[in-house]
Simulated scan of single mutants.
Amino acid sequence: MAELLNVENLSAGYGEAVVLHEVSLRLDEGQTLALLGRNGTGKTTFMNTLAGATRQHAGRITLGGQALNRLKPHERAAAGIGWVPQERNIFKSLTVHENLTAVARPGPWTPERAYQMFPRLAERQGNLGTQLSGGEQQMLAVARALVLNPRLLLLDEPLEGLAPIIVEELLRAIRAITRDEGLSAIIVEQHPQAILAISDVAVVLDHGTVVHRDSAQALSDQPGLLDQLLGVARR
């Protein structure tokens, strides 16, 4: 498989505060990477850095061979980054359909195709963002990233705080987007087993550095090691 993302010796943070320290990883076309770690280990900072929302102190990021280091967030979106941050950042004063058409770029993912992936959104096209439930807002945030027609989808804790039935719906959609459609993705999640099941590669961060990398299957098959890496105490 051809390499899509290459991160080399990345150090980044907020202002003068450095959160990530010499992080290196790569991802091939069509692969999904599960980015794991305890709270406060740098996972969100890494995603924000790929999207251009932090200060990069050192290192290099390339997407499909294109250097992203000096690009602004909107330029990274044009280069192929589709970002779904923890805050979702949908336009709450716009309707569902307006949220999608306002950012859509040419490509296979159209608003109509997004509605097929998320039927709940199709039913609520005319609803304002403020009229959606938390789960529907998350679906809209994912759909909005898809209609950018990205090469790499960044999902930062997409299941956080959602009802179990919505979690299952979103997991099915994410699996379809990555497995069936072949869209590359990096997923940060506090439910590791759920994400490892639909990922190819697993990387664990601790104190802003990579402390473990393996296939997702290999890490899923070692629950004791996974608990140790994530600081989970067994009773």
Rank of each mutant, 00 (worst) to 15 (best):
A145N: 04
L100W: 11
L100V: 01
M117Y: 03
G64R: 06
R120M: 07
M139Y: 05
P150F: 03
V147K: 05
N89Y: 06
Q66K: 15
G129Y: 10
V147S: 05
N127F: 14
L94K: 13
A114Y: 03
P106N: 02
A114N: 00
A122S: 10
F91Q: 02
E157S: 04
I61R: 02
R144T: 08
D156W: 09
P164G: 13
G59H: 13
A77C: 06
T95Q: 08
T130E: 09
R105D: 02
I166T: 14
H97N: 05
P85K: 11
G65V: 05
P108T: 15
I90S: 11
A114W: 07
H57R: 14
G59Q: 08
E98C: 07
R124C: 02
Y115T: 06
Q137E: 15
N149G: 07
P106E: 15
T101P: 05
R70P: 00
I165P: 02
L148W: 01
A141P: 07
A104H: 10
R60S: 07
G59C: 03
A145Q: 14
T95A: 08
Q137K: 11
F91R: 10
A104D: 02
W109D: 04
R55H: 12
L121I: 06
P111E: 12
P119H: 03
W83M: 11
Q137N: 09
V103T: 15
G129K: 04
G107E: 10
N69P: 11
Q116F: 04
E87Q: 07
N99W: 09
Q66S: 05
L162G: 07
K72C: 00
T110S: 04
T62F: 09
E157L: 02
M139L: 05
